[in-house]
């Protein structure tokens, strides 16, 4: 797992989560900016996942590769699913969906790092 990229993703996700939760608290529906910002985070996450997939080819494979792959698929799908649901929900709850996604993503990245740190000898 790429350390700096993971940290960047986590920080961006948490800052965005704070913003989106504030927006939901102020009873605002997701604006174009809110959706775009989440999409940018999604791209960042996608890059992180692709780098991790590329790392699987090397000789530092995580010992629990199936779980790792499962988490990678979940992680890359997360932001798109949240955006899809939020677009169907033009109320404050749409922003809350995006905010929850931004709170769960750091957990997923941390879990990925945890699984990746246990490698095959």
């Amino acid at each position: 797992m790429n350390g700096p990229l993971s940290v960047a993703t986590i920080v961006v996700a948490l800052v965005l989560a704070a913003w989106l939760l504030l927006r939901a608290a102020l009873n605002r529906a997701p604006s174009r900016f809110d959706l775009l910002a989440t999409a940018v985070l999604g791209v960042l996450v996608a890059v992180l996942v692709l780098v991790a997939v590329a790392g699987l080819v090397g000789d530092h494979r995580p010992s629990d590769t199936p779980t790792f792959a499962g988490y990678l698929i979940t992680t890359i799908a997360f932001a798109p699913v949240a955006i899809y649901l939020a677009r169907m929900e033009p109320t404050r709850w749409g922003n809350l969906i995006l905010g929850v996604a931004c709170l769960v993503l750091p957990v997923l990245v941390l879990r990925l790092q945890q699984i990746a740190s246990v490698t095959v000898a």
């Binding site: 605002r28 169907m88 929900e89 109320t91 709850w93 749409g94 969906i97 929850v100």
Partner: peptide
């Protein structure tokens, strides 16, 4: 888009339901 005017018979799978 405020949720204050949400109708009482709004569907189970909208609003908070979608979250």
């Amino acid at each position: 888009a405020t949720t204050r005017t949400r109708p009482a018979d709004a569907a189970l799978n909208t609003g908070l339901g979608r979250l």
